[in-house]
Amino acid sequence: MAARSEHRILITGGTGFVGSFLIDRLESDEGRGCGIVAPGLGEAPGIDICDADAVDRLVRDARPTAVVHLAAVAAPAEAASAPGRAWDVNLTGTRNLATAVLQHAPDARFVYAGSSDAYGASFIDTERPLPETTALQPMNVYAATKAAADVMIGQMAYGGLNAVRFRPFNHTGPGQSDAYVVPSFARQVARIAAGRADPVVRVGNLDVERDFLDVRDVVRAYAVAALGGLPRQPGLVFNLATGRPASLRHMLDTLIALAGVDVAVEVDPARVRPADIPRTWGDAERARRQLGWSPSIPLEETLGDVLAYWMNEP
């Protein structure tokens, strides 16, 4: 294991929502002394993760001690509208990166950011939060691409890749695009509070329950994995979850109460998913036991921070 001052961490997707929080985390006291390589950030040129030769050169030149792979087509709606692109980025791009790491940095820790969406149909009719041993049964394009890449990285770990896979449950925070449900609610409520929109919030199915995390808790787990503290062994996979699902109705009601506004709620058929799982929730005991990780930021605090971000929207 490299000394802390020798850590050099390559981050794909470093310019995105999660990536920006991870870089902040690594630049804090916890990651003091580590070098960060993030294509597209600052003066660093960007990279097409689907270009195998470019990815190979990136890894060869970066000489990372750890790679955190965040780059993805991450919005389910975007993946559904362009499935070919989603498969290219989420599966082929991941393979390109993992292959280059095996070739040029075989000792580097490969941190793969997967998704709890990969569990898909396994959530149906379950009476308990799902552990990592649960079957992956994806129900949409995005989930299928993430499940396929998850399985591939697991297989490559048996071929020598120093990998750890994460399956984070829904996570949000200030700065996330309103293409996602919580920022969508928060932006609508903030605009109403500012007198910039009619007092109507348009929603999908509010009765579904989701296991929501704060992005700052999620990147804390990624940082631990990238900076050391885990054995090198195949099969390392961790859920990141609270085990306490909350309904979207509760989240919207909380945002409305925080803003102190009176609104009408209107169901928009375009926002209702045709195959919405009633409840998703996860068991993160393995992460607690092996990583010393557990969520620390209450949902209400996260919602307040997301609302505050949109209240300050230009």
Rank of each mutant, 00 (worst) to 15 (best):
R244V: 15
Y142P: 06
I9V: 12
N170F: 15
P199W: 05
D56S: 15
R196A: 15
D305I: 02
S115M: 07
I124L: 14
L236D: 02
A77W: 10
H69L: 06
A2P: 14
A38N: 08
A72F: 03
W310K: 07
A105M: 09
A179E: 15
L70G: 10
L248H: 12
R196C: 09
I124M: 06
L227Y: 04
Q233H: 03
E132W: 03
W87K: 06
I9S: 01
D217Q: 10
V189F: 09
Y222H: 10
R210F: 05
I192P: 02
A149G: 02
Y309I: 03
V306E: 05
F21T: 10
S28V: 08
V89A: 07
A38H: 13
V151Y: 05
W310Y: 15
V18C: 11
T145N: 01
W293P: 00
L227D: 01
N239C: 10
L230N: 00
A52S: 15
D214Y: 08
A75P: 01
R57T: 13
G304I: 01
M1L: 05
A163V: 05
L70T: 08
V18H: 00
L70H: 02
V200F: 10
G260K: 08
Q188R: 04
V267I: 14
G243T: 03
H104R: 06
A79K: 08
L252N: 06
R85A: 13
R95T: 12
P298L: 05
A135W: 09
L136V: 06
R187V: 03
E132V: 11
R32E: 12
Y142Q: 12
D88Y: 04
D214A: 14
P129D: 13
A66R: 02
P183K: 13
R4V: 07
S116K: 02
S122M: 00
L136K: 10
F238M: 05
P298F: 06
D178K: 11
G235F: 12
V218F: 00
R8K: 14
G84D: 13
Y309P: 11
D211F: 06
E132I: 11
A275T: 10
R220H: 14
Y180W: 15
P138C: 08
S81N: 11
G175Q: 06
A284M: 03
P314S: 12
W87L: 15
L240K: 05
R57Q: 13
P131A: 10
